[in-house]
Write a protein that binds this DNA or RNA. Structure first.
Lengths: 361, 361
DNA sequence: CTGTTAGCGCGTTCAG
DNA sequence: CTGAACGCGCTAACAG
């Protein structure tokens, strides 16, 4: 039914082994022979059987990129950059891949721990060449251990493991490379900016409580408050009153901001977990008849492309998602040397725009 | 080195076939035996060898979702929905997948025809269970034929092929299902809305000229113009003067709008290829010291989540991306019957918001 | 319900 | 530089 390598060999009048050699290009083959084989391949519309090939070779050219939410550009940008780096500029147009061509596939966990593990297992099954995990990790001890264990086994089996925008694992396996964003520093500088403008009562719409990203950004925020001796900075209850958790969604930003405004009429600024949440916060502020930034300042995080187009343009913290994704791709390909100690912290840059200003009075 | 099915069989004191059976669950196995096997699997940290399994079974549980730009939520939303539908709510936490569990992976072509073909080949190699192609297709005869041919072979080999947000292939293979958005109708209704408001000189920032989506939306626009007898509607040169092509990016919207404003000071409205482009158009209008919608109305397409948060909220055409993606997922799984004739047109809904209003005077 | 027997299609030794 | 043989790890008939 389907044409196999043997068929090609027969058509070209050579042995299967020879066909295999020209297809993989890892071995010297006479030009004339190669041409004959390639023509046969073309004539027969032959397509290599991936499973058979991977089985025999005990490796595959698949690279998995795990993301928490594929509909969120935060992940899309990183994944796209990684993928571009991995696919490279394939010169070979036809069947035979000339070199170590890898193919990146992105796997959407939807933030579900089970799916994360499921995909990891799938990639392990497929003997993936590399795996990139992007974005914040879940802070669940059990799940963390399960992931660490699986990554360890993956690494042991020769799969390169790269963390991108996620802190290194608790178990600190040196076998893998980690690219961590400076969420804490970014969060801190953002709040420092607000404090410098004169804000004292600042609401915080945080992300899901169980994610590292959420915690780090919040920690930076509180560190800034504490360092500045802001009112209630040392009071946990007071802090909690001004902090609301929710998903990384516009809706969460909207509702939490409404609630913050209700709880604390003296509020002069809202810091959001990310830009999407900030957009919701802006809408809530406006719907209350308040102006941004005159009445309430709003700030985001990530600096996604749309943030500069918000009105007023959003003050936020820029994360070099593209660059980080590309670097993760290179690490996965083995094209770039891993950072010293296997872990690099990627700086976050404060972007001051029009959505923040001194409070009134 | 790595533990195989035979090892598990030995540990459990059964035959390899039995292990295979409990792992695949396609066959009756005594509960006691199953338990013993599962324990052995657990003890040994056994992971099924995907390639070997796919080779023997001549199928795999991989489903590929091709997208043009993974960083664009337009694709992210569809892909995410499809993926959710495909992954289903996996009850089985551990190794053994109970039923016909499939795993969706998304492949980012970046809009490159070669990469599209490369991914299709990869999926063909992997004997993918299904392939979903999302978003507008390239209108290149040669490439179209190549894609059609490959899809035909894929389908012949038993891979289910689904088109989502893309018109059916020229070669009209009935073997596959197509979910096409009513880009033309949406484009038409959008421009009709503008005409009804009283606009007569309307600029159009189109997408890349070679994509079906671009063409269809533009055709709808022009059909509306023609039907209304707008000035210059029948004049190709006049139309071209008010139409600029560019990528689906904010920057393109910005620059094209600047140029349109320069070319035609009497312009009272700008229609953008999609919401992202519209955001750029808005920025350009504002940077020229003009107000939206008082001086210039702006409209988008797609109704991406951020559009409602633009200021003023963007008038646009809503495409049910989530629903379409989910449906594509179901078609790929074979869970849903294909539409009559293999092709369904998905309606587009005009969303009138604050960014469009009657022109001055 | 379970064990036995054959391949699935290819990469990779080894000879030549 | 090329061919012949072997086995990768698993599933799918068959028997029992």
């Amino acid at each position: 039914m389907t044409v196999t390598l043997a068929d090609v060999a027969a058509r070209a009048g050579v042995s299967p082994a020879t066909v295999s050699r020209v297809l993989n290009g890892n071995y010297p083959v006479a030009t004339a022979t190669r041409d004959r084989v390639l023509r046969a391949v073309d004539d027969l519309d032959y397509v290599l059987n991936g499973p058979a090939s991977s089985l025999a070779a005990a490796t595959s050219d698949l690279v998995g990129v795990l993301v928490n939410d594929i509909a969120d550009p935060f992940f899309g940008i990183m994944a796209g950059a990684a993928q571009t780096e991995i696919a490279g500029q394939d010169a070979a147009g036809g069947q035979g891949r000339s070199g170590g061509e890898k193919l990146a596939v992105v796997c959407n966990t939807g933030g579900s721990p089970e799916r994360e593990l499921t995909y990891l297992t799938l990639l392990q099954r497929q003997r993936a060449a590399a795996v990139i995990l992007t974005g914040g990790a879940l802070e669940d001890a059990e799940h963390g251990a399960a992931v660490a264990a699986k990554l360890g086994r993956l690494a042991a089996a020769g799969t390169r493991v790269v963390l991108c925008g996620r802190p290194p694992l608790p178990g600190g396996d040196a076998a893998l490379a980690a690219l961590a964003f400076d969420d804490r520093g970014g969060g801190r500088r953002l709040t420092e900016h607000l404090l410098a403008l004169g804000h004292r009562v600042i609401g915080y719409v945080a992300g899901p409580p169980e994610r590292t990203t959420t915690r780090h950004r919040l920690e930076g925020h509180r560190a800034a408050l504490l360092a500045a001796g802001a009112p209630g900075a040392g009071d946990a209850a007071a802090q909690d009153r001004l902090t609301l958790h929710g998903p990384y969604s516009r809706r969460s930003g909207y509702e939490a901001t409404l609630e913050l405004l209700r709880r604390e009429p003296a509020l002069t600024a809202v810091v959001a977990a990310n830009d999407t949440v900030a957009l919701g916060a802006c809408a809530a502020v406006r719907d209350q008849g308040l102006r941004i930034p005159q009445d309430v300042s709003v700030a985001g995080f990530d600096d996604l492309p749309f943030s500069v187009d918000a009105v007023p343009a959003l003050t936020t913290v820029r994360l070099p998602l593209q660059a980080a994704g590309a670097r993760a791709g290179r690490l996965a390909m083995g094209t770039e040397a891993p950072p010293p100690g296997g872990i690099a912290t990627i700086p976050a840059e404060l972007m001051v725009r029009a959505s923040t200003a001194p409070p009134r009075g």
